[in-house]
Amino acid sequence: MIIGYARVSTADQSLDLQMDALNKAGCERIYTEKASGGKDDRIELARVLDTLREGDTLVVYKLDRLARSTKKLIEVADLLDELGAELVSINDNMDTKTPIGKAMFRMIGVIAELERDMIRERTKAGLEAARARGRKGGRPKTDARKLDHAVRLYEAKSHSVREITELTGVSKGSLYRELDRRKEGAQ
């Protein structure tokens, strides 16, 4: 059986491109997931790996949809070897049914991990450079007066939360955190 796996990192990203490619590759069943590739507890990936049997082929659009670290890719490769299943990565033009495909699988995994580490290193260096120039990271603090005004509007029940956020400029998350904080303080 040819089984597909598609993943995007956030809920607002689309699976359409991957789904089209997996359908074109002849996948009989496709598992989809909206979860970070860095997480090891991806439910649908676990289901895919439990479903695979000897002779099956797991198809992904790109290897980074399957795993973000060489370690995880190798774990998946070892599991597929144990099961007698193969792996095809459409965009990486890789098929583990061939010796070259198996070698390419491991090399691409190393390169993907290197790329991720380099991005992390550049981000860290950029944040350190900004701090050295006196800039702080993170979100700006919410103005206490605006927050207090938003809470009063909320408690008056005269406006919807959406209207309150538009009127005050206080985000919905900040409003709810402040309401929780005040509720805990009152108890």
Rank of each mutant, 00 (worst) to 15 (best):
M1C: 07
I2A: 11
A6N: 08
T10K: 07
D12F: 13
D12C: 08
D12Y: 11
S14L: 04
M19N: 01
L22C: 15
N23Y: 09
A25K: 06
E28N: 12
I30R: 06
T32F: 12
A35T: 15
A35Q: 12
S36H: 00
S36K: 05
S36G: 08
G37Y: 05
G38P: 02
G38A: 01
K39L: 09
D41G: 12
E44Q: 06
E44K: 06
V48I: 15
G55T: 01
L58G: 07
V60C: 02
V60I: 01
Y61D: 00
L63I: 15
R68W: 11
S69Y: 10
K72P: 15
K72H: 12
I74G: 09
E82D: 14
L87N: 02
L87I: 12
L87R: 00
I90Y: 05
I90H: 09
M94T: 15
D95L: 12
T96H: 08
T98S: 05
P99Y: 07
I100C: 05
K102Q: 04
A103L: 06
M104R: 06
M104H: 12
F105T: 04
G109C: 10
A112E: 08
E113W: 08
E115R: 02
R120Q: 09
T123W: 13
K124H: 00
A125G: 09
A125F: 12
L127I: 15
E128D: 04
E128H: 05
A129L: 08
A132E: 03
K136A: 11
G138M: 02
A144Y: 05
A144Q: 08
L147P: 14
D148H: 09
A150P: 13
V151S: 03
V151L: 03
Y154S: 01
E155H: 10
A156V: 13
S160E: 04
V161I: 14
V161Q: 00
V161M: 00
T165D: 00
E166M: 04
L167R: 03
T168A: 08
V170K: 01
V170P: 06
K172M: 13
K172F: 14
G173S: 13
G173C: 13
S174M: 05
Y176H: 08
R181P: 10
K183V: 09
K183I: 04
E184F: 13
E184R: 02
E184V: 14
A186C: 07
Q187A: 12
